[in-house]
């Protein structure tokens, strides 16, 4: 019990942030019309590409003579960039069509 409370105390802000982010994520999505499910999934898909930031940090942290970590980081950055760029571009292409017919 002691451990649990001290953990709670030390990470209070983080825990708040986690809970509010979860609630926010649920709240933002729950009223979406079915028409937008596919673009929305695609847009969310692009946003989790933020993991790219972590890949960049890993590559920075790797020592210059640690080729294994460097290559892993390199491939991770390529994958992450693909996720981000491709994700946003594909979503934009889908949504472009929704705009056209509004005229």
């Amino acid at each position: 019990m002691e451990v649990f409370f001290s953990f709670l105390h030390d990470n209070l802000l983080l825990i708040y942030l986690l809970i509010f982010s979860i609630l926010l994520g649920i709240e933002v999505i729950s009223k979406v019309p079915a028409v937008l499910h596919t673009p929305l999934m695609s847009g969310a898909n692009a946003i989790h590409g933020v993991v790219l930031v972590g890949a960049i940090i890993v590559l920075f942290n790797a020592r210059a003579d640690d080729y294994l970590s460097l290559s892993l980081g390199f491939i991770a950055v390529v994958f992450g960039t693909l996720n981000v760029v491709g994700g946003f571009a594909v979503t934009d292409r889908m949504l472009e069509m929704f705009k056209k017919k509004k005229k």
């Binding site: 942030l17 982010s21 979860i22 609630l23 994520g25 649920i26 946003i47 989790h48 993991v51 972590g54």
Partner: peptide, 28 residues
């Protein structure tokens, strides 16, 4: 995973972005 990695690196943008997608993805 993006959120978990965000906690490892104490990186709030990864944490927030990841959790948002995790939550909205589940609802979807």
């Amino acid at each position: 995973t993006a959120a978990a990695a965000g906690i490892i690196y104490e990186n709030l943008i990864m944490l927030v972005g990841g959790i948002l997608v995790g939550a909205s993805g589940s609802i979807l």
